[in-house]
Write a protein that binds this DNA or RNA. Sequence first.
DNA 1: TTGAAAGCGCTAACAC
DNA 2: GTGTTAGCGCTTTCAA
Lengths: 337, 337
Amino acid sequence: MNIKQIAKAAGVSVATVSRVMNHPETVAPKTREKIERVMKEAEYKPNWFAQGLNFNKTKTIGIVIPHMLHSSYMEIAGGVEEVARMKGYITFMCNVEKDKKMEREYISQLIMRRVDGIILMFSSLDEQHLAQIDSEKVPVVLIGENQENSKACSVKVDCRDGAGEMIAHLLEVGHRSIGFLCGSDPQQEAKEMLTGYRNILKASGLKADEDMILRTENSIEGGYISTKKLIATKLPDAIFATSDEIAYGAIDALKDSGYKVPDDVAIAGFGNNRMSNLIEPKLTTVELPFRKMGIYAARILFDLIDGESRDDKQILLRPRMRIRKSCGHKERIGEMF
Amino acid sequence: MNIKQIAKAAGVSVATVSRVMNHPETVAPKTREKIERVMKEAEYKPNWFAQGLNFNKTKTIGIVIPHMLHSSYMEIAGGVEEVARMKGYITFMCNVEKDKKMEREYISQLIMRRVDGIILMFSSLDEQHLAQIDSEKVPVVLIGENQENSKACSVKVDCRDGAGEMIAHLLEVGHRSIGFLCGSDPQQEAKEMLTGYRNILKASGLKADEDMILRTENSIEGGYISTKKLIATKLPDAIFATSDEIAYGAIDALKDSGYKVPDDVAIAGFGNNRMSNLIEPKLTTVELPFRKMGIYAARILFDLIDGESRDDKQILLRPRMRIRKSCGHKERIGEMF
DNA sequence: TTGAAAGCGCTAACAC
DNA sequence: GTGTTAGCGCTTTCAA
């Protein structure tokens, strides 16, 4: 069923039908009603392509997700999607499995499909690729890690600060030697946290023991393996992991080695996954405002799409501590959730 | 940059340019090379809408997801996406938050955008709505719960069998009174499991105690609350939950009430979430082949899209037991992962 | 092997 | 207030 048939059935021209869809106020109430009735009866839906060909807009955005099975990423995506839906947009979610090539591939697919804007989560793209997208005139907003020098709009959390605060807390509770499990990704974020770690130690007059800083894959398994490695040489008072997943693995490894958490070794994570207050012991961690990150990013994107320029193009969110049992803080156990 | 400009730059007509894109074999090698060079130089990308207007194909499928934060659903989606990507398709993922209205809304958006096919996960749509989609001539494949009588293609797991097997196992290990936490959704699946539960009890000469069958929201919190309720009246030997989430809540509630799992009460879940072998005690559960479900569904969908009719339109997958510590089975602890 | 031109379904400028 | 018509960028038939 196309516009021509509707026009004929209503006894008007295609232009008038088009008008009731796009500028209803310019057509006489009577004819309008008639046309509307016919459209409803025929369950008429304007052809998407034809409309796109004229408007060059799709009411569609794309969001690139590093890994679909990480609920944190999905929470961010949820925030984006919520805003998009409110605006009448639909969202292409692209799972790139942390693969640079897949990411580029998906982005070009999105551009081909003429999305009105793109949100990149923890993108692995470098300056050059970003510039390339930019040249396509598609608005882009970055969430999380990106190159320091990028001029793109972005929403990030202050990881340095978050990690620093947590390290300070561990020191305060009495831990002296603190291991650092540094996840392989998001790289930039992990680096920031490491800086926070070093800063706080230095400020407390302690020296970071380089043997206690281990790189690891960002996963439960990675945490398990690197913890085994860490404790093989020396048992720290506490371990800070750059993600909750790594922390889960660390706890598992310690248990398997016969150590008690937090009595023998305290553990702190980063992210506050949904499961983190369910595992035993409940995990002390840094809570990241995932959903909010998505919401902010989406808002910026839509401002960009609507042609408004934003001054606050780079948003930095502050994380929040979640003190639970795993770090051995006895007094504040009331804040367990 | 459009086809006209390419044509001019290459000194040919638009028809010839179009030919090198769609039927390259019909154009002389020399002219073809020339045109290809020009296209490459100009980084020419054919207009999506114009192509769509002619072909009426989008190389796009839609997948409706009940809830993005459930990793099980995302695993299914991952399977679908993988197949889609291999086929050069891109996937619209729609998060409907278990809301019937949102689901319908999204589906109509998908149809408007002329997706080539749709996969519905645990859809709440009834016969009538499905028929409506069908009338739009968009191929549809269902994953999981749907109306018994539906004729649509589908991929499901045999929940009755899975639950039955687990109940049989609990009996075998020596448990006699078994509580049943029946999640509110997916409804059909939970019902199937309840049937499995009743059947096995009956076959063993036991009678299902109706007080031990509790409906609950399908969430950690739901499991917590209903377990508290359940044990307030009578403490069963074991509890079977229709999802791992519910089981997590159950474990938490038992611990909070001073009971030991599995010594005082054994627990078994359903789904085998990623976290289930991390919590304490590791959860005995029924493993569902999520990714495979997605893959199968996608394959059927593409067969449908390609116009092949499939005889095996209704696939029923068998789940698999994961015996871990939470059900108190001492001997088979080797199978812990 | 190539080009001219009609047409896909819609929008909007222009004329009445 | 409404109709006529030229495009949007591409594909494809028909002729050459």
